[in-house]
Design a binder for these strands. Sequence first.
DNA 1: GTCTATACTAAGATAGAC
DNA 2: GTCTATCTTAGTATAGAC
Lengths: 221, 221
Amino acid sequence: MAGGRIRQENEALILRAAEYVFARAGFAGATMNEIATRAGVPKSNLHYYFRTKQALYRAVLAHTLALWLSETDIIGAEQRPQVALEQYIRAKMRLSASHPDASRVFANELLHGAPEIRDVLSGALRALVARKAGVIREWIARGEMASVDPQHLFFTIWAATQTYADFESQVCAVLGVSHLGQRDYEQATDHLVRLLLRGCGLEPAGLAVELSSTRGESHEF
Amino acid sequence: MAGGRIRQENEALILRAAEYVFARAGFAGATMNEIATRAGVPKSNLHYYFRTKQALYRAVLAHTLALWLSETDIIGAEQRPQVALEQYIRAKMRLSASHPDASRVFANELLHGAPEIRDVLSGALRALVARKAGVIREWIARGEMASVDPQHLFFTIWAATQTYADFESQVCAVLGVSHLGQRDYEQATDHLVRLLLRGCGLEPAGLAVELSSTRGESHEF
DNA sequence: GTCTATACTAAGATAGAC
DNA sequence: GTCTATCTTAGTATAGAC
């Protein structure tokens, strides 16, 4: 299974190209031809390394799922909610900025009813959200934040952060830019942190209470 | 163009079937065969009424766009922001609940870079948001709400409301239900109204200030 | 172990029958 | 004006050459 160096390299090349193509065309719209051309390998090698188009798609999805399920470690009862939630939102936005194609592949899969990852969603993801929802309920019970439905809070954070990757074309059209730059992402992040923390009855930990548009610090991207 | 009664009826049948299929399979994944079967007309009639698959797709998109661009009339400077924003959020949620397939077709188009509606987005939609952003800035200048980036506020409201239609499979998996019922949508709507209005420094007009989990009133649906 | 040539299937589109 | 039969293309998958 481990295979030689050539195999490893080619598989990595193909997976990257596949993510790019699947993100733009969806599963049905993507062609093995396009992926092969982009990866710089002969078309039929795709079938050599990944038996079918579906197998290749699943391999790409596995990568996006790993990204998707990460990052929630920040949310623990021992943390202060304003710190944990702010860090979580920032982490999710960094993910949208750094891996927009992974986000789009995942979004496309959900949009079409999640045929390939249904089990993971109602298994691992559901369990993960249940755990983290418990933490949020504890914060609420302690009076550390306003009463917010924890599950729906996750839906809102996911939707609000991923929209910058998934629906970039809409965001760009409204903002009048050709693509989202670092500054755009910084503005969007600050907007979301303020809006959502205030919505949870919290104040951003490190930011001035001041609502002016100039920010105190800039975050890496 | 108006055509006879049969034409009108058949076109309506086809458009409804097409929306259903495009919503689930995307443009590339949808087949004329499937749409024809679902509409109950012979396959080749689709090409008779709509010359190409793309033409049919565009016709479906036009319908979703009309829905999408509506509903912002609620937002006017003469309104109080808490009333206007609450009504807007509720209207968007009703749309997700009543026309999930339209939302999915639109989402799919955006996800793939909006090849067919790019012009509408950077034309009509951009202009509309610019106008409504002016209203929000006026509210902020008057001290009627917190300082929130108006454009990003729209992105957040759109994303947070449409996620219940577009990514229903994920929401259902996490909630542990097979499909979203009226009660789920009511909970989601109340959650969003509270979270976002509070995030804008507002209190829901008709709701108690109390943050307890039992609500003072239930809203119509 | 890797790439070339080819078979097979399905889907969009059209010409012509009814 | 509406539907049936057919053509053509393109895309997945495989067998076999190198």
